[in-house]
């Protein structure tokens, strides 16, 4: 229904409303210059392209609308609106995706790993030098980070059956473990209840 301007029939605009002045070969202009009620779409004719369709002569300025206050459909609108904050996870029977909620007992430990705002464990794998160096990082550590480091080292030594190098960044509140131990450390964190 929009007014369409195409360069190939640009000059036809000047002929609208001046039918008498148009020479006999007006069909060559590529536009049908009738001035009927063109805003009515259902008496439709398929024009081969926009340029060949006629200009809209009569556009209705105002259409009639029902304004419905507190409509029953508002529930459908509300479900489309974004979350205000990330929702807390409600307790469920089981979590098939393998995600495990944090447990209350973990808060009594001398160290703590808090969850991210997405309720995930903050354990990541940093890959550098085109995959030649893999470093597992545990972030968001609170409490006694050195004790946590000792525990991780002992646990990894048993799990990987070799000595595993770690590095503690106290101010950054994270520990880096040399090698890809994301799954092992995630299991450990779940056991601890973080």
């Amino acid at each position: 229904m929009a007014t369409v301007w195409r360069s190939q029939c640009a000059f036809t605009r000047f002929f609208i409303g001046k039918i008498a002045q148009i020479p006999n070969n007006s069909s060559d202009l590529g536009t049908k210059l009738s001035l009927g009620p063109l805003s009515v779409p259902w008496v439709s004719r398929n024009y081969s392209n926009y340029a060949h369709s006629p200009f809209v002569s009569k556009v209705k300025e105002q259409y009639e609308f029902d304004v419905v206050k507190n409509p029953p459909e508002w529930a459908y609108v509300e479900r489309l609106l974004p979350f205000d904050t990330i929702p807390a996870v409600s307790p469920k029977e089981k979590y098939p995706s393998g995600w495990i909620p944090p447990r209350e007992e973990a808060r009594n430990l001398p160290f703590f790993v808090s969850r991210t705002k997405n309720h995930e464990l903050p354990i990541y794998l940093n890959v550098t030098f085109r995959g030649m160096r893999k470093i597992t990082q545990i972030r968001k550590i609170d409490g006694d980070i050195w004790l946590l480091n000792d525990e991780i080292k002992a646990y990894l030594k048993e799990a990987a059956k070799r000595y595993v190098e770690t590095r503690v960044h106290e101010l950054g509140k994270f520990i880096e473990v040399k090698g890809d131990y994301v799954n092992v450390l995630r299991d450990w964190a779940y056991i601890k209840g973080f």
Partner: peptide, 23 residues
């Protein structure tokens, strides 16, 4: 060994419902 422990905890968790205070 590890997976056994995790499964044990998963089973344990079923009886524990976290006591959340949502105000």
């Amino acid at each position: 060994m590890t997976s056994f422990l995790i499964n044990a905890f998963k089973r344990l968790h079923l009886s524990i419902v976290p006591n959340r205070i949502i105000s």
